[in-house]
Simulated assay, not measured.
Amino acid sequence: MKDVQNAADMRGIAIQKVGVSDVDLPFLIKTKNGSFQSVLAKIKLTVDLPKEYKGTHMSRFIEVLNEWSQKPVSYREMECILSDIMHRLDAQRADIDINFKYFLEKRAPISGLKSYLDCDCLFSGTLLSGDHLKFVLGLAVPFTSLCPCSKEISRYGAHNQRGLMKVKIKHRPGHFIWIEDLAALMEEQGSCPVYPLLKREDEKYVTERAYENPKFVEDVLRDLVLALRRLKGVEWFEVECENYESIHNHNAYAAHREFVSEITSTERSL
């Protein structure tokens, strides 16, 4: 049959990204303990298209994704996925975004009861011919914050709220951080972590811990920035923190982006 995609195009426009998006597939994500977690992933996979060609072969993207959906995926496998699609389509560049819910095992602080916290996660990768994989890990983790101003001026307590912190982090080649480790680092920067399951003794603990550790949204963001600076091999990171305010009809928000190479040795040691 006639291959229309390989027909010549005379408009002289190369396309940087062409492929498939909003592909829902079951995927296996490697865990820190050496196992894997089965997730429902929403995927975008693209390659570059030279100006000489009319179109790409969409079916090959789905073929590659279907094959890799049966293999546990982490940093190294992302490079293999992109190499695979580049080889099949004779491309010089490939990009992939894998968005999924990842479940973290949590134990209540006093009772020790186990539950699972769902977090939005992103694996994003770019591969150029002859280069290393550029990999970005994205993670959103909920937290509790307690208002320092409210605590200072109130006789009976202080208002607190649930917030959400989002991190995107890009490591240099040869470096990697597990989802579990990044989540633990992020949770420590709030007034208190969020737990899906709490008994009365646990609720007492988290209420008092937040009260003893009041933080504005700015405090949470700055502490998170300092923690990320201490990670090895980080090229850049983005941070967003948002408090879902309990006494206002609006949210409190802060954001920051940083190239770590621009940080001085004195700042890094803080």
Rank of each mutant, 00 (worst) to 15 (best):
K2V: 11
V4M: 10
N6K: 14
D9T: 06
M10N: 14
A14G: 10
K17Y: 10
S21I: 03
V23L: 14
D24Q: 12
L25S: 07
P26I: 14
F27K: 05
F27E: 11
T31F: 00
G34I: 02
Q37P: 10
I43Q: 08
I43G: 06
V47E: 02
K51M: 02
K51N: 10
Y53F: 11
T56M: 07
R60P: 08
R60I: 08
I62R: 12
L65G: 06
K71P: 07
S74E: 13
R76A: 13
E77A: 11
E77K: 15
I81W: 00
I81K: 05
L82W: 02
S83Q: 15
S83L: 06
L89Q: 10
Q92M: 04
N99D: 01
K101S: 10
Y102H: 13
F103D: 08
F103P: 04
E105S: 11
I110R: 10
S111F: 04
G112T: 03
L113N: 13
L113G: 06
L113T: 11
S115Q: 09
Y116E: 11
L117F: 10
L117R: 13
F123G: 08
S129F: 03
S129N: 15
G130E: 07
H132D: 14
L133W: 08
K134W: 05
K134S: 11
L137H: 01
G138Q: 11
G138N: 04
L139Y: 08
A140T: 14
V141E: 03
F143H: 12
T144K: 01
T144H: 02
S145A: 07
C147M: 02
K151Q: 03
I153L: 00
S154P: 04
R155T: 12
Y156M: 08
A158E: 02
H159T: 02
N160R: 05
N160V: 04
Q161V: 12
Q161C: 11
G163I: 09
G163M: 01
K166R: 14
V167C: 06
K168Y: 15
I169Q: 12
K170T: 13
F176T: 04
W178Q: 12
I179F: 15
I179C: 08
E180F: 02
D181N: 15
D181S: 15
L182A: 03
L182T: 07
A184V: 13
L185I: 07
M186H: 09
E187H: 08
E187C: 05
E187Q: 15
E188H: 14
Q189T: 09
S191E: 12
Y195Q: 13
P196L: 07
P196V: 06
P196S: 04
L197E: 10
K199N: 05
D202I: 06
T207W: 00
R209L: 06
A210L: 00
N213W: 09
P214Y: 04
K215I: 04
V220R: 06
L221R: 11
R222N: 06
V225A: 14
L228E: 09
R229F: 05
R230P: 04
V234Y: 05
V234N: 01
E235K: 07
F237Q: 03
F237W: 06
E240P: 03
C241R: 01
E242A: 02
E245H: 03
E245T: 04
E245S: 12
I247Q: 07
N249G: 05
H250Q: 14
A254I: 03
A255E: 13
E258Q: 07
I263Y: 00
T264E: 02
T264K: 09
S269K: 14
L270N: 11
L270K: 13
